[in-house]
Amino acid sequence: MVLMKNYISSDDQASIVNICRDLGIGDGGFYQPGYDGGRKMNLQMMCLGKNWDPDTNMYTELRRSDNTKPPEIHPKFHDIVTKAIQDANDFIRVNGASSDEGRGLPSMSPDICIVNFYSEIGSLGLHQDKSESEESLKKGVPVVSFSIGDAADFSYGETRAVGKADKVILESGDVLIFGGESRLVYHAVTGIDPDTVPKSLREATGMRPGRLNLTFRKY
């Protein structure tokens, strides 16, 4: 599990916001997901590549609520993900974070991205990302997470016990990668820190208050 602070450049952060905005207003764009019982999640979501259904915890080609097909993952996102995994593995090797030679984060070309937008009151409870294929999970193919906009209070741990979770602040431009033995780590967004979006990003994009989070996976 590797956190790279301020990894995404200001220009790339602005590009990510603008790309997500353009995709988000089209077919398969942002919506508020919910469950069959009527309860809604406390965020706006858009899926790229494949649609994730929060009620079934399964991926589908079309979104059940409106039968729309998710947009494709933008090539710029692929480039950042590839470089981030390479740089994370360089860090692991240099710092001896893995005791066994050859170990590290498996390479990945993502075919799924879940884009969440949290308002200033948004949150997401402790959960595991485990809807991907058995093969992907077994190999520990990583999840790569981009944070853009307002900072978030992020909790993570080996169990669902909230009181035992570690905490870190994810700020705009940070990239968090968890794979290998940490692939099924429990994690949560417990709060959004208002008025923390970088001034340069707000001026370049007109981004509304909140946090944009992109998590890339391999099915």
Score class of each variant (00 low, 15 high):
S119Q: 13
V168E: 10
I85P: 01
R63D: 06
G37N: 09
Y59L: 05
H187N: 00
F91T: 11
E132P: 00
P33I: 05
A204Q: 14
H74E: 08
K5Q: 09
R64D: 05
E134L: 14
A161F: 02
F77V: 13
G104Y: 06
R21I: 02
M207H: 00
V189M: 11
Q44C: 06
A188Q: 04
T82E: 12
R63P: 00
K130V: 03
D66C: 00
E72P: 04
E135M: 14
D129L: 05
K164V: 11
L48Q: 11
D27R: 06
D166I: 03
M46E: 06
P110E: 08
Y35L: 11
S200A: 08
D53N: 14
L137T: 06
N42I: 03
K83L: 08
N6Y: 07
E181A: 15
S133L: 10
E171Q: 14
I80V: 04
Q32P: 04
L170K: 13
C47S: 11
S131R: 01
G102R: 15
R183V: 07
N95M: 03
P142L: 07
F146A: 12
Q13V: 10
G122T: 10
I16F: 10
A161T: 15
T60N: 05
S182Y: 13
V175G: 00
I121P: 01
H74A: 04
D111Y: 00
L62T: 02
S98I: 13
G191P: 04
R93D: 12
G96D: 09
M1S: 02
G179N: 13
S15Y: 12
M207V: 05
A14G: 14
R21F: 03
I192R: 03
S147M: 08
E101T: 14
G29A: 01
T82A: 12
A97D: 07
G206I: 07
F117K: 06
T196E: 11
E181S: 13
K218L: 08
I8S: 04
L3E: 10
I8M: 05
G38L: 04
L170A: 09
M45T: 14
L23D: 11
I121L: 04
L201T: 13
H127F: 04
L62R: 07
E181Y: 14
A97F: 15
A151R: 05
N57G: 00
S109Q: 15
K218Q: 05
K50M: 11
Y7F: 11
D55R: 09
N89W: 10
K164M: 15
F146P: 10
G38Q: 13
Y59E: 00
M58R: 02
I177F: 02
V94M: 14
Q44R: 09
D90V: 12
R93N: 08
S109C: 06
H127N: 00
